[in-house]
Design a protein around this nucleic acid. Structure first.
Lengths: 220, 220
DNA sequence: AGGTGTATGTCGCAT
DNA sequence: ATGCGACGTACACCT
């Protein structure tokens, strides 16, 4: 990783056009070639950037970074204040716990927490429109199409509605119901869902993990 | 801006939980207090971060960064390889040209490029569901509800559909039509739109700017 | 403070 | 490659 602190101005031309007036900034060049221009504030997002793969051309007064899509970032260098490089090696990577995938796993393992009497048909059921998170059967023999979200917002309801419309063409599934499951569901999303006959269920991730631990204790 | 290159391991606990095994990384601390952990690759996004406002507690063997929401990032420092700081001052900021707002402006100025005979009613018409980009009237006296996107995807069609459903309750608008305008419209989005009777129009930003320049030349 | 929409979103996984 | 959905999305803007 190369770290250059310099007075510079920047022009980016690509998906849109941007200009940065002359100021002192950090220019970060990573081992994979990606370049980012950072100011001394404004969260983690750089002012300008070019992701790998790209070509970095170092000229006397400026750097030009180009990619295959025709995007160009030009960094006009006015004064270099610091220029250092470190070999960091490859990173072992980030391990995550608690994202939607885990929520979905837990719910597929214990569908009864969403509604009494549900049994799992399948998880990640691929349709032409995209993957349906969970398919269950209810005690009345209906197929329950379940969309799982960490946060239940209006987009998720639209998504589930599209799946329901599509799956209605599949005669093997029989009568369909929709169920929208999330750790919290926004009022607008709930209203929209219920107006379409979709049941809304809020679940607690920590409690689910607890239930799983209980099951474990119970059976071992 | 403070730049620390160090061998470290990191734990983040908040909206989810993440762990980073021991490795050499860049720790960037900006003047506003935000902290980011960068590996030597993977675009501009850091592996872990904490945005301002937060509290940075520097202990002998670790840094703890906390915010008001109860999120905590703990950086265990094993070896400091480099530690430097630079005062960058405040940045004059990024100037952008060519985002959706500009496209919308240009289209509101010359609605005829979307369809012959359209006249502007209003721009950024606020409804309970969100702002409708452009409202026009067509030569048949119908109100045209227009959603403008840089890239036309399925979400935009859903958005426009919600607006149309909502505006149907407003008797002052008369008969409604939907129009989906973008620099490019994906096939799925087009299919969905047309199945709902929504007209799709692709426009060229540079050409619009050209038209505007022509108008200028014409009248001055 | 909460809701909605934009983003040079990025990122990962599917076809 | 493109499509599609998730993301600790961040971020601006309006109610």
């Amino acid at each position: 990783m190369r770290l250059v602190v310099a007075r510079c101005s920047v022009v980016y031309t690509g998906r849109l056009e941007t200009r940065l007036a002359e100021a002192t900034r950090l220019i970060m060049v990573k081992a994979d070639g990606c370049v980012a221009i950072h100011a001394d504030g404004g969260a983690y997002k750089p002012l300008n950037w070019m992701n790998a793969p790209n070509e970095l051309l170092e000229l006397a007064d400026r750097w030009e970074v180009r990619n295959k899509k025709g995007e160009v970032m030009t960094i006009h260098l006015l004064e270099i204040i610091s220029d250092s490089a470190h070999d960091l090696g490859t990173d072992p990577g980030l391990e995550k716990d608690g994202v939607e995938a885990h929520l979905q796993e837990l719910l597929a393992e214990m569908p009864h927490v969403m509604e009494d009497g549900l049994t799992l048909l399948r998880r990640e059921h691929y349709t032409a429109l995209g993957p349906v998170d969970i398919l269950c059967r209810d005690p009345q023999g209906r197929t329950v199409v379940i969309e799982v979200k960490r946060r239940g917002e209006i987009d998720g309801v639209e998504q589930l509605t599209r799946y329901l419309a599509d799956l209605a063409n599949d005669p093997t599934l029989g009568e369909l119901r929709g169920m929208f499951v999330a750790q919290s569901i926004k009022p607008q999303a709930r209203t929209l869902a219920e107006s379409r006959g979709i049941v809304c269920v809020e679940v607690d991730y920590d409690e689910l993990r607890g239930n799983k631990a209980d099951d474990w204790t119970l059976f071992s």
